[in-house]
Simulated assay, not measured.
Amino acid sequence: MDSLGALNVFVQAAEARSFTAVGRQLGVSSSAVGKAVARLEERLGVRLFHRSTRAITLTPEGSLFLERCRRIFCEIEAAELELSQTRGHPSGVLKVSLPLVGMLMMPTLSAFMRAWPDIELDLDFTDRLVDVIEEGFDAVIRTGEAGDSRLMTRTLGTFRYKLVGAPDYFAEYGIPREPVDLVHHRCLHHRYPSTGKLEKWGLFDEAGAALGDIPRTAVSSAIEPLLSMAERGIGVAYLPDFAVVDRLAAGTLVSVLDEAVQRGGTFRILWPSSRHLSPKLRVFVDHMAETLFSGHLS
């Protein structure tokens, strides 16, 4: 058990890249963490970390040892989970980070909570880049590519963008037949709260050139106000299809220039690779993958 404790300290230090951070997590001093790692290095006869005043980094031997330790802990967790699954249903707190647009996933999240009432969702909505391991998240949902080798990932689904407006709006202003027609329309824009930049509308003319400046009638750092304004006939909005699919079906919004919109994205769920999928995380991952985009997204 003492050896497992030392391996745990090593894994946490390798993932956090800081003896101080690990000390805070374990309730001990950074020097105690450093001494535990030093004793492990002495016993193994290799140096596991390069140390500097600013940070610690793994040596090649340390990287190999880390992967082996992760497999060891995964096997231990798997054994524990096999036993725990015999005692009842998945339960406990599940801490998940979602992008701000994830607020539009609430119907799917609500369905999960009804299906698994013993699991408490702790949801953090933010567009900032979170450190999944350092900040203690069980999982994160994001768009784009997964660039952290410490994380496992599963694709939840793909989405496309759509240009939408209310039928009354298009009756008054006309339906744009090509992207350049948007210069005569009232356009509702999304600003990324993390950078302050406007989201670009992925529109291209017949020659394949990207559309230039688009008029601004309103700008919002959240998707929901744009959705509301578009539905109330204020203007045209550029929104992901999963955000508007129900309103398109109901007829309160209609889409235009579908052939000209050439941008989309992929949602992925990520979790620490050093952890075996717990029952609560497994049912959450399965639920999101099976239901988030079911029925209307490719």
Rank of each mutant, 00 (worst) to 15 (best):
D2W: 01
D2Y: 01
D2V: 07
S3C: 00
S3K: 03
A6R: 14
A16T: 06
S18F: 13
S18P: 07
V22N: 08
R24I: 06
A32S: 11
V33S: 00
A36P: 04
A38M: 07
E42F: 09
E42Q: 14
R43V: 02
L44I: 02
G45I: 10
H50K: 02
R51H: 02
T53C: 06
I56A: 00
P60T: 11
P60L: 12
G62A: 08
G62T: 00
G62Y: 00
L64F: 09
L64W: 09
F65S: 00
R71D: 03
R71A: 03
A78R: 15
L81M: 06
L83S: 12
R87A: 13
G88P: 11
G88N: 13
K95T: 12
V96T: 10
P99M: 03
V101N: 02
L104V: 05
L104F: 10
L104D: 14
M105F: 11
T108W: 09
L109M: 09
L109S: 10
M113Q: 15
E120R: 15
L121T: 04
L121G: 08
D124G: 03
F125P: 00
L129R: 13
V130W: 03
V130K: 05
D131K: 01
D131A: 04
I133A: 11
I133R: 15
F137P: 07
D138I: 10
R142W: 02
R142N: 04
T143F: 07
T143V: 13
G144C: 09
E145A: 13
D148I: 03
D148N: 05
R150F: 14
R154W: 01
L156D: 01
G157A: 07
T158I: 01
V164G: 07
G165N: 11
P167H: 07
D168V: 14
Y169Q: 00
F170P: 13
A171C: 12
A171R: 15
E172N: 04
I175L: 11
P176C: 10
R177D: 10
D181Y: 05
V183T: 03
H185Q: 13
R186E: 06
R186S: 12
R186V: 02
H190E: 08
K200G: 02
L203H: 14
L203T: 12
D205R: 02
A207R: 12
G208Q: 10
A210N: 02
A210R: 15
L211M: 14
D213K: 12
I214P: 14
T217E: 15
T217N: 13
A218W: 09
A218T: 04
S220Y: 06
P225W: 07
L226P: 01
S228V: 12
R232E: 15
V236G: 04
Y238I: 08
F242L: 08
V245Y: 06
A249H: 05
G251I: 08
G251S: 12
A260V: 03
A260Y: 03
Q262K: 15
G264S: 07
F267I: 09
R268C: 14
W271R: 09
S273D: 11
R275C: 09
R275K: 14
R275M: 11
L277R: 06
S278R: 15
P279V: 01
F284M: 06
F284G: 02
M288R: 06
E290P: 04
E290L: 14
T291K: 05
F293D: 05
S298M: 06
